[in-house]
Design a binder for these strands. Structure first.
Lengths: 119, 119
DNA sequence: CCTTTAAGTTTATCGCGATAAACCTCGTCT
DNA sequence: AGACGAGGTTTATCGCGATAAACTTAAAGG
C-alpha cells in the first residue's frame, strides 16, 4: 500500500503519536516541541496532512492513529529490500550482518521468527 | 561510515557502474540515458560529485567504483533498522515477514545466513 | 468587556536532491 | 580550415519535503 509511505519527518511525528495516543492536540504540540524542536504551526501542518491522507485523525482535539505502526513498518522494510536488494531478504540479511557477530541467543530468536513464517 | 550514504538517484547510478565497471565514461552516458533517462550532463554531474566523495573514480575516461556495493548496502540496511526499528533486527524481520509465508527452502537459506553470523 | 489561551488554518520560506542547459577543449576526419 | 564527436565543467532550474510565520476563532476567567 502506497498509503503507508511516510517521509522521515512524518514518521518521527507519527511515532510520537503511536507512543502517546490518544493524545490531546495541544499536548501533542508540547511533545513535538520537546522531542523534535517543532513550532506549534509545524505540528498542526503535518498533523493535517497526515489526517487528509487517512493516517491520523484529529477529532475534537484528540489525536489518534488510523493506521498501525506495524503496517507502516512493514511497508518500509519491504521498500528497502525492494529498492536496494532486488527484493531478496537473504541479500538484505547478508548485508546487514556482514562481519558482525551475533550471540547464540540472538540467533535463536531470529530463527524462531523465521520458523513462525514458514507456517 | 557516513561516507557510504548514497541518495536514491546516486544509488541507482552507482549500481549501473557496479554492474559494468570498468566502464568508459561515454559508454556510461549511454547506459544512463537508456536505464535512467538521464542527459549527458546529468551523468557527469553526478559522476563528479561521487568522485569528489571518494565513491567513484574517473581516470582517463574510465569509470570505476572505489567502494564496494556490499559496503554501501550494509550501511543502508543498518540505517533503516536503526531509524525505524530501534536498531533491532528481530523487529525488522517481524515487520518484514508479517503474515507473509515463506517456503521451507527459503527458511533454510535464511537460517543458514544466521548461523554463519554466530561464528 | 477585555484579555488570555486553546485550537487550528492558510500561506510562505528554504534547503536540497534531481536534473539539465550551455559552454568548453581537443583530437580527428574531410 | 571547418565540422564533428568524445570528454568534461559550470552554472542554473525545479519540485518537494521540512518548517514556520501570521492570522483566526472561540471559550474561559477576572
Amino acid at each position: 500500500m502506497e498509503k503507508y509511505k511516510l517521509f522521515d519527518a512524518e514518521y518521527k511525528f507519527a511515532s510520537i503519536i503511536w507512543d502517546n495516543e490518544p493524545v490531546n492536540s495541544t499536548e501533542l504540540v508540547r511533545l513535538c516541541a520537546g522531542k523534535l524542536g517543532w513550532k506549534k504551526s509545524t505540528t498542526y501542518t503535518v498533523l493535517k496532512k497526515l489526517s487528509e491522507r487517512g493516517i491520523l485523525q484529529n477529532k475534537e482535539a484528540v489525536v489518534t492513529a488510523l493506521v498501525k505502526r506495524e503496517d507502516v513498518q512493514k511497508y518500509q522494510s519491504n521498500a528497502v529490500v525492494e529498492k536496494s536488494f532486488d527484493g531478496s531478504l537473504p541479500k538484505f540479511l547478508t548485508a546487514f550482518l556482514g562481519e558482525r557477530k551475533i550471540t547464540e541467543q540472538e540467533a535463536k530468536e531470529l530463527k524462531q521468527i523465521i520458523e513462525e513464517a514458514v507456517k
